[in-house]
């Protein structure tokens, strides 16, 4: 079987499982309506406080108020897309413990494909992605950025790339479940780092920090680099190429996450712990 056929098969299987995930979503309830309001409120609070600070100080590390709004909103948008498709990857440790993974292993389909396609969380469509897009449009307007095809392409590719980066990181960290029973903790352990990257331009924390969030836990590709590309300051990135590299970073991050998953799965099968 050629690599092309294998990929097509995997994509077909992914779609089959994703369809089940989409159908599994139950109807919208008061619960989720209140959560939606609350999440939007929380984001508005964060943005308002950033606004309070930046209206006093005119800039943070050379970035103006609306550039920081763009930074924050891009993160939300990428987070939103990732949440939509792969929020459940956080639960890999639960799936290992409760036997869901064993069920996947007795089916003639790659367990990774089954895991990725397990659920679809359309409730998150508005929470993060919606709020993020509103923020992006608003910020672009205030910054006088016009939506040329090129800029639009950068935006879309960056959001998709950023969400892939996040998926890869979450997949890799959650796959640590195969080594330790408490893997949700690794995702939890990056939360503050994510908060920092989401709220502030990374370079104010120093070059080492930018390298950390570029090469080790590449959260900077969700928002920091795309903002530089969108406002036309790509040369301020360590290398101008990085400003446009979110899609590539996404591919690499998912590949790295998949490697950890594979190694972990092999370990699970051989140690069962």
């Amino acid at each position: 079987m050629g690599a092309g056929t294998a990929t097509r098969r995997a994509a077909g299987h992914y779609w089959l499982f994703l369809k089940m995930g989409i159908r599994s979503q139950t109807v919208y309830s008061f619960d989720s309506a209140l959560l939606l309001v609350a999440v939007v409120f929380l984001n508005v609070v964060d943005l308002s406080l950033l606004g309070v600070i930046l209206s006093r100080f005119s800039n943070l590390g050379g970035w103006t108020l609306w550039e920081v709004v763009l930074l924050y909103s891009l993160y939300l948008a990428a987070l939103g897309v990732q949440n939509l498709f792969t929020l459940h990857l956080n639960l890999i440790d639960t799936y290992v413990r409760d036997g869901t993974l064993d069920q996947m292993l007795v089916r003639p389909v790659s367990p990774l494909v089954q895991m990725l396609g397990k659920e679809f969380h359309y409730r998150n469509l508005i929470h993060h992605l919606g709020t993020g897009l509103v923020g992006i449009v608003l910020a672009a307007d205030r910054l006088g950025l016009t939506w040329t095809p090129g800029r639009l392409a950068i935006l879309v590719l960056s959001i998709l790339g950023g969400s892939a980066v996040l998926t890869g990181i979450v997949l890799g960290l959650s796959s640590l479940a195969f080594w330790t029973v408490e893997s949700q903790v690794f995702g939890y352990g990056t939360l503050q780092l994510q908060e920092v990257v989401q709220h502030y331009p990374a370079h104010i924390f120093g070059t080492w920090f930018v390298r950390l969030v570029t090469f080790v836990l590449p959260f900077a590709f969700l928002n920091y680099y795309p903002v530089l590309a969108l406002v036309g300051r790509a040369q301020q990135a360590g290398h101008p190429f990085l400003a446009y590299a979110s899609p590539l970073a996404g591919v690499l991050a998912v590949a790295a996450g998949a490697l950890v998953w594979r190694a972990g799965l092999r370990r699970y099968q051989s140690t069962g712990s």
Partner: peptide
């Protein structure tokens, strides 16, 4: 009373943050 943990907690978190 509302049996809605996540929504209420996010609101609470927002109020405290602000």
């Amino acid at each position: 009373k509302t049996l809605n943990l996540l929504g209420v907690m996010h609101l609470y978190h927002g109020v405290l943050t602000l």
